[in-house]
Amino acid sequence: MTERDVAMRVNGRAYRARVADRLTLADHLRQNCHLTGTHLGCEHGVCGTCTVLVDGADVRGCLTLAVQADGAEVTTVEGIGGPDADSDLSLVQEAFRRHHGLQCGFCTPGFVVTVTAFLRENPDPSDEEIRDALSGNLCRCTGYQGIIRAVRDAADAAGRGETESSSLEA
């Protein structure tokens, strides 16, 4: 097994590590960066629980190798939040809370990251566009109606200027 040195910024903090060539980004984030908000579900890129942002684009952490993120800016669910990410909720997170867009919570980090990226690119989506954007994330608890309401509310609130624009930026 060969190893390589990787360096990346994760949630604004620099991380360097020597990793196996085949180590996934999700495993690197969990094992080496100690950020456990990125969950592993199917490990085939189907469920979306491992979604993170790499240079602003949403990617499946279980399909992306850590070496592919060398030199990148990575944002995990822990990096999405208000000015004090340890205590403030982002617009998306607050909408999920308000509309009970979660049940067991296992899928929630992937949904929050996906929705954050989606609303940054499409701040005024139709309900059909919301459903399409969420189609790559699975919720086994069937919490989709609350999730869709949360996305609609977050988009509407951002449109009314109820939050700083940084809440939707990675």
Results as ranks from 00 to 15, higher is better:
1 M>S: 13
2 T>R: 11
4 R>Y: 08
5 D>A: 13
7 A>C: 11
9 R>S: 13
10 V>D: 12
10 V>C: 10
12 G>N: 06
13 R>E: 15
13 R>H: 15
13 R>L: 12
14 A>Q: 15
15 Y>D: 01
15 Y>R: 06
16 R>E: 15
18 R>N: 11
19 V>M: 04
20 A>P: 12
20 A>F: 07
21 D>Q: 14
22 R>A: 14
23 L>H: 07
23 L>N: 11
24 T>N: 03
24 T>M: 00
24 T>E: 05
26 A>H: 07
27 D>V: 07
27 D>F: 09
27 D>S: 06
28 H>E: 04
28 H>W: 15
29 L>F: 09
29 L>E: 11
30 R>L: 12
30 R>F: 14
32 N>T: 14
33 C>G: 13
33 C>Y: 04
33 C>K: 11
34 H>S: 15
34 H>Y: 10
35 L>A: 10
35 L>C: 08
35 L>Y: 08
37 G>K: 05
39 H>M: 07
40 L>I: 15
41 G>N: 06
45 G>M: 01
46 V>Q: 10
47 C>V: 06
49 T>M: 09
49 T>I: 04
50 C>Q: 02
52 V>D: 00
52 V>K: 04
54 V>W: 02
54 V>Q: 03
55 D>L: 00
55 D>K: 09
56 G>F: 07
57 A>K: 15
58 D>I: 05
60 R>E: 06
60 R>M: 07
60 R>W: 05
63 L>Q: 14
63 L>F: 00
65 L>D: 13
65 L>Q: 09
67 V>S: 06
68 Q>G: 10
70 D>L: 04
71 G>V: 11
71 G>C: 12
73 E>T: 15
73 E>L: 07
73 E>G: 07
74 V>T: 08
75 T>K: 03
77 V>F: 13
80 I>E: 06
80 I>M: 08
81 G>H: 09
83 P>L: 14
83 P>E: 14
87 S>G: 05
88 D>G: 10
91 L>H: 12
93 Q>F: 02
99 H>Q: 14
102 L>Q: 07
104 C>T: 01
104 C>I: 02
105 G>V: 01
107 C>M: 04
107 C>D: 03
107 C>K: 09
110 G>C: 07
111 F>N: 02
113 V>M: 09
117 A>W: 05
119 L>M: 09
120 R>Q: 15
122 N>H: 14
123 P>C: 12
124 D>C: 14
124 D>G: 14
124 D>E: 15
125 P>A: 03
125 P>R: 02
125 P>H: 03
127 D>T: 13
129 E>M: 03
133 A>N: 01
134 L>M: 07
136 G>I: 04
138 L>M: 04
138 L>P: 00
139 C>G: 02
140 R>N: 03
142 T>N: 11
144 Y>V: 00
145 Q>K: 08
149 R>P: 01
150 A>F: 07
151 V>A: 00
152 R>C: 02
154 A>Q: 04
156 D>T: 06
159 G>A: 11
160 R>W: 07
161 G>P: 03
162 E>N: 08
163 T>E: 10
166 S>V: 05
167 S>Y: 05
168 L>I: 03
169 E>Q: 13
169 E>A: 14
170 A>R: 10
